[in-house]
Simulated scan of single mutants.
Amino acid sequence: MQSAPDLLHFLTVRGGCEYRVTALLRAGRGKKATVRELGTYHLTARGEQVQATGPSGQTRTLSHDDFLGVFGSYAFGPAEPTGVMTDLGPLFS
């Protein structure tokens, strides 16, 4: 599992490529701790913005600060590339 700041850095380094991640919410402590899946998100970083498509299919464009504000309390499963590229920059960098 990775935190929201770690995921944001991961996405920013690979800008333009879409990744699928599962948002997780930790609750409780010790033996009673649980991890609940909140849904699958498709995320793409493009410069200073992150495009996030939620489980409902609604897409929002967030600044880095907004992304951390919305997703800061979540943990995320491994990021899997979807093969969708929204920017050709990574091909020519």
Rank of each mutant, 00 (worst) to 15 (best):
R36H: 14
L62P: 03
G47V: 07
G89P: 01
G39Q: 11
E37I: 02
L91D: 08
D66W: 05
A27W: 03
T22C: 06
P81N: 09
L8N: 01
H42Q: 11
L68C: 08
P5W: 14
Q51V: 13
S3E: 04
T59N: 05
L43Y: 00
G16I: 04
D6N: 12
Y41D: 07
M1V: 03
D6I: 06
E48D: 13
G89Y: 09
A45P: 06
Q58G: 09
V84W: 07
Q51F: 08
Q2Y: 11
M1K: 01
L11A: 07
A75L: 08
C17P: 01
V35N: 00
K32G: 15
S3D: 06
T53I: 13
G28N: 06
G72P: 08
C17K: 06
M1E: 01
S63M: 10
L25M: 08
A52S: 15
V35P: 01
P55W: 08
Y19E: 04
S93W: 09
P78F: 06
L62R: 05
Y19Q: 06
L62T: 07
L91W: 13
M1W: 01
R60G: 06
E18V: 14
P78D: 13
A75I: 02
G83N: 11
S63T: 15
A75C: 06
R14M: 08
Q49N: 09
T44R: 02
G30N: 04
Q58M: 12
S73Q: 14
A79S: 10
V35Q: 00
H42C: 14
P55D: 10
D66L: 13
T40V: 11
T12W: 05
Q2K: 15
L91M: 15
G28S: 09
G15I: 01
D66M: 10
G15M: 04
V13K: 15
L88G: 15
L11R: 01
G77E: 01
Q58S: 14
T59P: 00
T22D: 01
A75K: 00
L68I: 10
D65L: 11
F10H: 15
L25S: 05
A79N: 03
G89V: 13
G77K: 02
R26S: 12
L43N: 01
R46Y: 09
L7W: 02
E80Y: 05
L8D: 01
F10W: 13
T59M: 11
L88M: 12
D87S: 15
V50T: 04
C17G: 02
Q51D: 06
M1L: 10
H64F: 14
T82N: 13
Y19T: 05
T12M: 08
R29D: 05
V21M: 04
C17H: 07
Q58K: 14
V84Y: 09
H64Q: 12
L25W: 00
Y74T: 03
S63Q: 11
Y74C: 12
T40G: 01
S63N: 10
G16N: 04
H42M: 10
F71I: 03
Q51G: 07
L68K: 05
G69W: 11
L62A: 08
Q51H: 11
F10Y: 15
S56W: 06
T12N: 08
V21H: 03
Q58E: 13
